[in-house]
Computed example of a mutant assay.
Amino acid sequence: MGIGAAIVRGLVDAGASVAALDVDAVGMDHLAGLPRVTLHAGDLGHQASAHALCAQAVAQHGHIDGLITAAGGVRGQVGRPLQEIPERDWRAIFAANVDAAMWCAQALAPAMKTRGAGRIVTISSGAGLKASLTGIQAYASAKHALIGLTKQLAMELGPSGITVNSVAPGFVLSNPATQKQWEAFGPDRQAQIIGNIHMRRLGRVQDIATAVTFLCSDHAEWITGQTLQVDGGHA
């Protein structure tokens, strides 16, 4: 189960109604049986399609209290030398990790401002705070940009009662891409990575979902502009 799916399940368990938006319609099928969940498939990396999907969600749910931008990842890429990176690969990672968050926030924040309350949580990464273990230049750059967007929106939207925070996961085996990255490290590098984590284990998707649920709750109403590292204490 991926991080996005775990977040949907965590929010449902907390009593929320959830509109799940993803480019992969088939990948969302396993969420169809959950109570109070609607599914909306389309590309969030482009302004027009992101706005259209958000409008669908609002139409089905009446209004949106919070936005969690979990779209992202490495888009099937692996670490390569700087001189080998084509423009399309660079832009694909930015579209998924930064553009999607921007366009969804642009679509949904105005109604939150009108109500005077709302929650936005971006899913960044430890790669947004330092260099990325993946070695992918665009991924590290995009996650740094996403944290910057989080801080900027927190300042802009705070006076309207909207909190904007980011959760920065450590290494979580959440999908085939992260599993492939982990296997590529080999036993020695894997042992080194785990040895640098205070809790001596990799993350679970539920670890991330729990942090997101907290930031969406009333308990976090005076927390904004923050990046919460959920990484087991990565040195």
Rank of each mutant, 00 (worst) to 15 (best):
L215Q: 11
F214A: 11
N165Q: 08
W182M: 12
D207A: 04
T163L: 00
N175I: 03
T178S: 15
P187C: 07
G233L: 07
A168Q: 11
I197G: 13
I162S: 08
T163H: 12
D218T: 04
A211L: 01
A209P: 07
V164R: 01
I197A: 11
G232T: 03
L215S: 13
D207T: 05
R204T: 12
H198I: 09
H219F: 12
Q229K: 14
V167F: 08
F185Y: 14
T163A: 12
I194Q: 11
W182V: 15
V167A: 15
S217I: 07
I194D: 11
G170W: 03
P169I: 13
Q190Y: 10
Q192N: 14
T224C: 08
R201H: 08
Q181Y: 14
H198P: 10
G232M: 01
F214S: 08
L202H: 01
E183M: 02
I208A: 15
G232S: 06
N165Y: 07
D231A: 15
P169D: 12
I223C: 05
M199R: 09
P176E: 11
S166A: 15
G225Y: 01
Q181R: 09
A191Q: 13
G195E: 10
T163G: 10
D218V: 03
P169K: 04
T210S: 10
P187F: 00
G195F: 06
T227I: 09
S217Q: 05
I193D: 12
D231F: 07
A191I: 02
T224N: 01
I223Q: 05
N165A: 05
D207Q: 03
S217K: 00
Q181T: 08
N175L: 01
W182Q: 15
R189I: 13
F171P: 01
E183P: 06
A177S: 15
S217T: 01
N175A: 13
T163N: 09
L173A: 00
R200M: 08
I208R: 10
D188K: 10
H219L: 09
T178Y: 14
L215D: 06
L173S: 01
M199C: 14
A209R: 03
V164T: 02
G186R: 02
R201Q: 01
S217D: 07
V230N: 14
I194L: 14
L202P: 02
T227M: 09
S160F: 06
V167K: 05
Q229S: 15
F214P: 06
G186Y: 02
G225F: 03
Q226C: 09
T210Y: 03
A209W: 00
G232W: 06
H198W: 10
R204Y: 09
V164I: 00
C216T: 06
T210C: 08
R200W: 01
H219I: 03
T213Q: 02
T224L: 05
I162F: 04
T224I: 02
S174L: 11
S160H: 11
L228G: 13
V205Q: 05
P187R: 00
Q179W: 12
L215F: 10
R200F: 07
A211E: 04
N165T: 10
F185M: 15
E183W: 00
R204K: 09
E221F: 05
T224S: 13
M199E: 10
F185A: 14
I223L: 04
H198G: 12
I193W: 14
T227W: 06
G233F: 06
W182K: 11
